[in-house]
Design a protein around this nucleic acid. Structure first.
Lengths: 205, 205
DNA sequence: AGATGTGAAAGTTTTCACAGCC
DNA sequence: GGCTGTGAAAACTTTCACATCT
């Protein structure tokens, strides 16, 4: 199958969370109209997004909440445990480490790296902070699936290179500015300045 | 003038930062080709984005680095000081408060609100943490331009309502899930789970 | 009747390609 | 010759509208 667009995948992820809510509300089936209303999109959008991956609904009835949630989990790869490394143990790193929400989705921070001698050897919830140079060795087995780049801008490309060199194929980058990686590596950027500046643009109209 | 698309504005913000780099590298003028290469887009994209707002370049030469940077600052509203309120003094709030980078772009956190009695009255860098119920009074004058929502998901809509009620017209939301606001309020979502799940999708192909 | 799945239409964004200026 | 600015073309995304199934 061809790849779905980035926006389809982002919405799928939102549907997944909303289906969890509907599940807790004891809904058995749900029409695209209700899911769309809560997601803030059109019903046609919901149906198009889903139909890209298969025929999950029943005409006249809608979608089975549990079953659709499982289908989306399978599509997004949420059935399993993802091994995550946190690169950078500063303020942001600490906040991300404390944000346990990600574990509910299967993302577990199993490594924390930094270069500050004062931090190395200290433990967060029992997990020892290691020097970034240790990354290749520690990534050897059982491997690291995703690296979160939470270092200052100047250091971002460097740690990304180390991560890619160690075989990591997915990066979430919080440092401002693009990092350059080979084609087979996926990168998502979370750029605070861009978000804030798009708000100031909205305010100056 | 009509509004530029969200993606044009996001790229403009990236160009702005890159022009700062070129400025430090003592470049006087720059062709769209070089700016595009560093931004990771096509030269035509750069020219189209800029031409939406005016004719800033000179044929045969390119763009004047300093001048273009100022033009973009004016477009994005970066010439002034933006008053920011941080809603939520948890781990994420703390990390955002410590992230001084935003000040370089003119965004200053002047208020921090929370509802935890243990936190209220304590100070961060001299700034007192106030109860969220204080927000309307404190937003009265000189006003708050932008609120950053850094509270747990369940509380997000509630604090957003308070912020909107207090006249704030721009929100940056870190809580998962959409928050509903009136049309005249701008919202940008930063959703970690969506970012991570789009990475796991990329990995399972 | 109710709601999906989907081609076709509409809308939006990006890229092409070249006239026009430096 | 180098490079911008921009209509036109191409590519992509969203919405419409309806045949189809329960």
């Amino acid at each position: 199958m061809d790849r779905a667009s980035a926006s389809t995948v982002a919405r799928l992820s939102a549907y997944y969370r909303l289906l969890g809510e509907f599940e807790r509300e004891r809904a058995e089936t749900i029409p695209s109209k209700r899911l769309a209303a809560r997601a803030g999109v059109t019903p046609a959008q919901v149906r198009k997004d889903l139909s890209f991956f298969g025929n999950f609904g029943r005409r006249g009835l809608g979608y089975n909440v549990l079953q659709l949630r499982e289908e989306i989990a399978a599509i997004l790869g949420l059935g399993r445990r993802w091994r995550v490394a946190l690169l950078g143990a500063g303020n942001l790193g600490q906040a991300l480490f404390a944000y346990r929400e990600l574990e509910k989705h299967g993302f577990f921070i199993e490594h924390v790296f930094d270069i500050d001698p004062k931090k190395i050897g200290t433990r967060w919830r029992g997990l020892e902070i290691a020097h970034t140079s240790e990354l290749p060795r520690r990534a050897a087995d059982p491997g690291i699936d995703i690296a979160i780049v939470a270092v200052p801008a100047e250091a971002a490309q460097g740690v990304a290179d180390i991560a890619v060199g160690a075989g990591i194929r997915a990066l979430l980058n919080f440092a401002p500015g693009k990092i350059v990686v080979p084609d087979h590596v996926a990168v998502r950027e979370v750029d605070l300045s861009i978000a804030m500046e798009s708000l100031s643009y909205a305010l100056v109209k």
